[in-house]
Design a protein around this nucleic acid. Structure first.
Length: 476
RNA sequence: UGAGGCGUAGCGCAGCUUGGUAGCGCGUUUGGUUAGGGACCAAAAGGUCGUGGGUUCAAGUCCCGUCGCCUCAACCA
């Protein structure tokens, strides 16, 4: 029992102190470390592998939508930002600027990109002349920098990795349609790859991206009931196209202005995975993006034939495309069980002399902590089926946890009580900014997303006729 | 930027009230015994106590400054 407590002390209690649990778990599992500059993080191999898996999954989906990868420069002339009034106002406070280079002061300061609409808009203006050049769909995987006041690994760092897709279209309808197509692409990816259910829909004016006509979001519920904006897709209308002169000749010869979109998800998604699925033992990774999908723990490893059999099994699983590791360290089996559970590996195989003799292996799944015996024969098939079931079960479990915590309220008291209890709260809204501000002021909750297709009688704040239903939650 | 907390070995901490030889646990290294839920024995390595100044015969400890980190609020993916 004393030993048990010793283990528990390694990470904070997830229920008692969620923020501390989060910090403990990301550091102790070696996903990330702090960089020397405040707000920066080092993404360590175990964490970066998740990002690479996310990239792989998204790239396939982008390609299917005709989006091509490219790369644009890190440094953007400051003057580009001033071309779109709302955009510059929204980002000015958090832009880092290079003023000196080569030992001299620059004639024009250079912004380190906080996002690339301005430079990509400039380049698109150069590349687009005819309706035949449209639609143009590019994406880049890159880092961006936003000088944030307070930071947390993955969730909010000064520098972070993301992808940003940018498209230009002939008509508003086509651009809007594409904006929603990307939102749906994200939703499918979140559910099938990360096992994270999301609420999708439009943001209120207040929460809209600086310079967009409409911002669509996906909101995920974390273990503590708070919401995490996990990705956005923006319909930019002609705001940027006009500012950067993205113009083309149409079929009938007249000069027209394009309609543009942008969309992105970031390394914040790694934080979302951790805070959606994690438990008192540590991380729980969905198999599709898990850096290691299966770990083999040899039991009584020095006994004859055990390591050989483990190596054999490892080779078989590798051949079948399973990301597998054999833990050949000298640590005790119990130590390894706890370690790999903390690291969130979806399936663990325990293989000892007794199993080998019986032609079996013991498989422990991380999501439910159940152990099942499986035949060693055709082990890869069994493991792959188990991984698939873990993936499916994780989404279902997360969806169930979330749905139990979506409640309705019809006044301010109800919203406050709801978010205090760690819920998403749906409530009627008249549509005015004053009521939206008042909710934030009095409850700390913000309007996360419109609950589309739902209706309510009255606004929870002013009691006037409700025009919309809003999902309110406290957010990261 | 406001409020609180913390900087002592790789990690977690004690020591500070009342100044007097730098400590504990974990980890690491070496050798051995172990092995189905964080094993054990023995030996060893590892510190300008965040940093600058002051008080003192003497500062991890007292005083002043400064830097950094964490949590909570405001801003944000």
């Amino acid at each position: 029992m004393a030993k048990e407590n010793q283990f528990v002390e390694q990470i904070a209690d997830i229920n008692a102190d969620f923020p501390q649990w989060y910090t403990d778990v990301v550091l102790k599992t070696k996903l990330v470390d702090y960089g020397p500059v405040k707000g920066t993080m080092v993404i360590r191999p175990y964490g970066y592998a998740i990002w690479e898996n996310i990239q792989k999954e998204l790239n396939v989906r982008f390609a299917a939508q005709g989006v091509q990868n490219a790369y644009f420069p890190l440094l953007i002339p400051m003057s580009y930002f001033t071309k779109e009034a709302e955009h510059v106002e929204g980002f000015a406070p958090e832009v880092a600027v290079v003023t000196h280079a080569g030992g001299e002061e620059l004639t024009e300061p250079l912004a380190i990109r906080p996002t690339s609409e301005t430079i990509i808009g400039t380049m698109m203006a150069k590349w687009i002349q005819s309706y035949r050049d449209l639609p143009m769909k590019v994406n880049q995987w890159c880092n961006v920098m936003r000088w944030e006041k307070t930071t947390r690994p993955f969730l909010r760092t000064s520098e972070f990795l993301w992808h940003e897709g940018h498209t230009a279209h002939v008509t508003a309808e086509e651009a809007e349609e594409f904006t929603l197509a990307m939102l749906n692409l994200y939703k499918e990816f979140m559910e099938n790859c990360l096992a994270i259910p999301v609420l999708t829909g439009r943001k209120t004016e207040k929460e809209r991206f600086a310079g967009a006509v409409a911002t669509y979001t996906m909101e995920a519920m974390m273990r503590d009931g708070k919401s995490l904006q996990s990705g956005t897709s923006h319909y930019l209308g002609q705001n940027f196209a006009k500012a950067f002169n993205i113009e083309f000749q149409g079929t009938e010869g007249s000069l027209q202005t394009a309609y543009t979109t942008s969309f992105g998800v970031s390394t914040r998604l790694i934080g979302a995975i951790i805070m959606t699925h994690g438990d008192e033992r540590g991380l729980v990774f969905p198999p599709v993006v898990a850096p290691i999908q299966c770990v083999i723990v040899p039991i009584a490893a020095r006994k004859g034939g055990v390591m050989e059999k483990c190596e054999e099994l490892k080779a078989e699983l590798e051949k079948a495309g399973v990301r597998v590791t054999l833990d050949a360290t000298d640590n005790s089996p119990g130590w390894k069980f706890n370690e790999w559970e903390m690291k969130g590996v979806p399936v663990r195989i325990e293989l000892g002399p007794r199993d080998i003799e019986a032609g079996k292996m013991l498989c422990a799944r991380r999501d439910t902590l159940e152990k099942v015996e499986m035949p060693l024969e055709n082990a890869a098939d069994g493991v792959k089926a188990l991984l698939a079931d873990v993936q499916k079960n994780m989404l279902e479990a997360a969806k169930k946890r979330r749905d139990e915590r979506i409640v309705y309220a019809d006044d301010m008291q109800g919203i406050l009580a709801g978010v205090d209890a760690g819920n998403f709260v749906k409530a009627g809204w008249c549509g005015c900014r004053a009521c939206e501000d008042k909710i934030k002021e009095q409850t700390g909750a913000t309007a996360r997303v419109y609950a589309e297709g739902e209706s309510a009688e009255t606004c929870a704040v002013c009691g006037k006729k409700a025009e919309h239903v809003i999902v309110y939650a406290r957010a990261y």
